[in-house]
Structures are given as C-alpha cells and as structure tokens.
Design a protein around this nucleic acid. Structure first.
Lengths: 179, 179
DNA sequence: CGCTTACTTCAGAAATTTGTGAAGTTAAGG
DNA sequence: CCTTAACTTCACAAATTTCTGAAGTAAGCG
C-alpha cells in the first residue's frame, strides 16, 4: 500500500526530517494569510523529490483526509500555483508545482494589484482632487502602480541571475525539459 | 456630539461617498489575508482628511463598538502601520497613519521574509544538497533573499520619484513637516 | 460488464475568529 | 477629591472556516 516506487528517500525520513520543515513553512504561509491546508499541500509539494505528488501521497504525508487534499488542490490550481496532470494509464492524478513557481505566483499577483488600484482610483475620485485624503489615496494608487511596473523586471532579473548561476560548474541544475 | 471642528467634508459625505470606498478597499485587504476590522480601520484612516482619527470617530464611521476599534488599533500598531498619539490636554487618543505608510509597511515585511528564509534554509539542510527537493527549496530561499535585497532599492526609487514629481508646479504636496 | 481504485462533493461537527456589551482603568477638569 | 470621558480588557455569543466521514462519480482492469 505504501508508495515506494520512486527513488525517494526512505519514507521514515519524511516524518523525521522533512515533515517538520513542511509544517513550519506551511505555518509561515498561513500566518501570511494562506488557507492552512493549501499551505500544507503546497509546502509538501515543495519538499517532494519530484515537485509532484498524488492525492494519496499527500494525504498520507499530511495525515489528513483525501477530502481535505481535494479542497486544497482545487484552491491551489485556481490561483495557478499547481497544475494537475493525469498519469497515463492510471486513474491517479498528480499535482505538480508549476515550473518557475515563484515567477508564476508573483506574476499572478498582478491581478491583486489591479483590483487594488481600481478600488483606489475610484476612492480618489470620491474624495476629490483638492483634499488631503484624496491626495493620500492618489499617492497610494501610484505606489501600487509603481510596484506593478517594477515587479515584472524584478522577476526577470531574478530568473536571469538564477539561470546564469545554475549554468556554472557543479552541475546544480540540468536545464529542465519543458515537458 | 459630532466632530465638526475640522475643515473636513460634511459628515453625510462620509456615508455617501467615502464609506463605499473604505469598505471596498478593506475587503480587498481582507481577501489578501488581513484581519477584517484592522483592514477597515486602516482604510478609514487612509480616507480621512488628516490621516488620523480618534477611537470615537472610527467607531462612528465604521459603525462598530469601541472594543472592536481597540483590538484593531492594537494590531495595527504592533505591525507598525499606525502610531498612537495623545491629543495634549485631552484624554482622546488619535491613531495616525505613519508618514510614508507604504515605505514603512513594506520595509517591515522584511521580518516576514527573514522568518521565511530561516525556515527554508533549515529545510534545505534537512533535504540535503544532493536531492532535487533540496535544490528546489534552496532556489526558493534564494528567491526570497533576492526579493529582500531588491525591495529596499525599489522603495527608495519610488520615494525619490514621488518626491521629485510632488516638487513640480501645481502645489500638489507641501514638503510635509516632520511634526 | 461489473469490480475496484481514485478522487470529488456534501452535510455536518469541531475549532477558530470576530465583534459585542459590561465592567475596569486612567486621567482631565471642576 | 469626585465626576466623567475615553479607552481597554474580558467573557461570551455569533459567524466563519476547516476538516472529516460517507456517499457519489469516473475510469482502469480483469
């Protein structure tokens, strides 16, 4: 019944060494506003050898019901942090972290920023151009606009830097096949 | 009973024009993980003429109990988004948005990033340097380190740009006295 | 074709968060 | 001093979130 097909570390290592990290990082994410189970699933995938696990593997490692996993992965794929793929010739589904997970995730934050700036713009109109409150809200709008504008470049630079470093000696990262 | 000492817009304007904005922006913040009442108080201060309100004013505008305001402002000052000041010769306290609120707020996010990178570093050790999971977690650590490093400069550049713009013609923003 | 596995959905129990009224504390002002 | 205003703290009620077991659906496999 246990999933030992992969050249992963021995299962007992998960509990002893990996689980504490998963739970701690999940707690960090939860504190920052993420749903708890979604955070646990995400952290568990991050710490998995392949960056992908099935529902059964997740519910075993996290000691929670398949139902809880189901809810969490639905959320995570809605916000584009994971993708779901079917193992061919099996009804087992695998939930996989996106390639370039942080690039993806932070890019999707644009949607948040757009909503916020829309709200703020309507607010600055309601307050009027000749009030201090209006000025403050306008400045806030400009801040988030600026942030949005900068974010893209920042992410690109990080990607470039990472790829440059990874290309050095030490064989850290084989240029991952796109599929 | 009503506070009409300030050259604010007429009180009825708050309900009709400002409150919808306050509630909408508060909802945006809540959706992003902020406590609801804290978000409402913050949004209300943002939309206030002076960037500062007393507990009574807040509980009137938000139609909530003084107790709820008390809890929210405690939280907001813990995370350094507002400061509390006493009006001299009065037992009325005012809660004031920090100057440079976004600069401050995002700078304080460093604490979050520090906690995350600490967790991630311990995780990459637990996973070991020769595993794909370890590599992934290490890359994540590096991403957040990079983010932290860039954030300071980004904020400085925004501040510089804003101050430059504000200094132009049109008298948009008098160089705010530090006190 | 049914059997079985793998996942999803749903109703509800449990836990957590949120906000209130009431009582308490502190300090201004007569 | 005593009164009163302004906030805080606390206990509890209400609302919300979170997770589970049970029942349902779909697809591989014999």
């Amino acid at each position: 019944m246990t999933a030992q097909h992969h050249p992963e570390r021995r299962p007992e290592d998960y509990d002893a060494r990996v689980s504490p990290f998963v739970e701690r990082f999940a707690a960090d994410l939860t504190e920052a506003g993420m749903q708890r189970m979604a955070a646990r699933v995400f952290a568990c995938l991050l710490a998995s050898e392949q960056g992908a696990l099935s529902s059964a593997e997740l519910s075993e490692r996290l000691r929670c019901s398949p139902a809880a996993v189901s809810g969490a992965v639905r959320y995570l794929s809605q916000v584009h942090m994971i993708s779901r793929e079917r193992e061919p010739g099996s009804r087992r589904e695998r939930y996989r972290l996106h390639q370039d997970i942080w690039y993806e995730t932070f890019t999707n934050r644009d949607a948040f920023l757009d909503r916020w700036t829309a709200t703020l713009r309507s607010g600055s109109e309601a307050l009027g151009p000749d009030t201090e409150a209006g000025r403050r809200v306008r400045e806030t709008t400009e801040f988030f606009d600026y942030l949005k504008g900068e974010l893209g470049g920042l992410l690109e630079r990080w990607r470039a830097q990472r790829d440059a470093t990874g290309g050095g000696p030490g064989g850290a990262e084989p240029p991952r096949a796109r599929d």
